[in-house]
Design a protein around this nucleic acid. Structure first.
Lengths: 249, 249
DNA sequence: GAGTGGTCTAGACCACCAT
DNA sequence: TGGTGGTCTAGACCACTCG
């Protein structure tokens, strides 16, 4: 008995060959997107999933381990397999690369400056890679580390995915967990483009630096579990006592 | 028959438990460090390795796949398992994050400005995390993309690991491949600390920018296969048409 | 066709956690 | 003590590459 359950669907679409465990990975990922299990919830064990999907336990194991490497699931021996949440220590720091020089990583607090629904600016539209006249929420925030303002960020969220934001007056400090719990949008990949720039008068006013100082500008596009670009963000970061950390292995 | 070959060694050192495949991974990695197989060379197949190490083929497979994820090996179906080289397309770009805005990634050329053996500067010593009076080679280079100078870099290499550099007048453009083939030092991990800074008179002269322009400064520590810090490098990068790209998944 | 890695399965046993 | 994931093994078969 080979590729018994998933092959039919896929062969209809003209896909030449996908290993069973890849099909199981995609299937489980899709079930998570559809919220069969919410973040933090436990999946059935390997044998139950294997039976449900008509494959062997070893194949399920390989698929679940793949999703674990991708940080979509987390597994604990003796306990079970869980949908990852953007709350535990690991996840929280996964997308926070700005660090105070010589200190341990720390999560910044955020001060909300404004939140409004606007017609998408041209540079933001380009980031989302779409055309036309979408509406986006523009969120302006200042981030605080060490009791000083270190980052000024402009965040753009497509109205389509974030309708319920309308009228909101306050936001939590950690937005990615907020997206996940309130909008069923789990940030799964980011692309950061980092440049250096000179502080403008606005930067100087908001961050307490001098006009003409050097700042880091980080442009980030964040993608959700199902691959949609759900957030574009421009961060202007003080660089006097802070740096952006990249560890490659 | 369980953990038959490696457990003895390890239990003597007081290590409580390591899976067989982890032991095999470390063993194979060590053999690569010792140059039993050089970069680009093919390993014996799974069954031969399994027999040599006294474990099953499945365990060898899991170990080799682990080293493949770590990019220490590369496997090609129908061909064999090879020690990774810093020459193929993937490897070359693995540690080159500076990209011209709106263009496809491209490898820069390098112009050697100077190479001398010096007493280690204080800031460099700190990067290597050692104490005392080590000697290091200081290499100054300008990197070229799009027919313009875009990066000025200072590279520091401990004399201990790079003795044969003495008297050298020329260096290849791609240093990591050079380290690998000439010194048996494979770069396996890097830590980049990115800051913004203002161009000095020296920067302006070397990069053709104006004094006071914003530059990216990247401080990198590179580690070899066996974990030694083998290179410290400070890159000052034009940011007008270039950016540092980080993709996180 | 011969040889390699890749997939899939099945089963025994171990390590860890909760109760 | 029962249930979970983790390890290890063995074997059949598939997909790919190359001479």
């Amino acid at each position: 008995m080979k590729n018994n359950r998933f092959d039919n669907k896929l062969s209809q679409t003209g896909v030449v060959f996908q290993p069973l465990y890849t099909q199981v990975e995609n299937h489980v990922k899709q079930l998570i997107v559809e919220q069969r299990w919410k973040p933090g919830e436990m999946l059935p064990n390997e044998f139950q999933l294997a039976e449900e999907l008509g494959v062997s336990q070893g194949t399920v194991r390989k698929a679940l381990n793949g999703l674990t490497s991708a940080k979509i699931l987390s597994r604990r021996q003796g306990v079970g397999t869980f949908v990852s949440e953007h709350t535990n220590q690991d996840s929280l720091y996964r997308y926070y690369p700005i660090i105070c020089d010589g200190k341990a990583p720390e999560l910044p607090k955020a001060e909300l400056l404004s939140l409004e629904l606007i017609k998408v600016p041209k540079n933001v539209l380009a980031a989302f890679g779409t055309e036309g006249n979408m509406k986006v929420f523009e969120v302006l925030r200042r981030r605080i580390l060490n009791n000083e303002f270190c980052i000024f960020e402009k965040i753009y969220l497509p109205h389509t995915y974030f309708k319920a934001l309308e009228g909101t007056q306050e936001l939590p400090h950690t937005l990615y967990h907020f997206y996940q719990t309130q909008f069923n949008l789990t940030v799964q990949a980011t692309t950061d483009r980092i440049k250096a720039d000179i502080a403008t008068a606005e930067d100087a006013r908001l961050l307490g630096v001098k006009k003409g100082d050097a700042l880091l500008e980080v442009q980030r596009i964040a993608h959700s579990l199902d691959g949609k670009a759900i957030e574009f963000r421009i961060s202007r970061c003080r660089s006097d006592n802070y740096h952006y950390l990249v560890e490659s292995t």
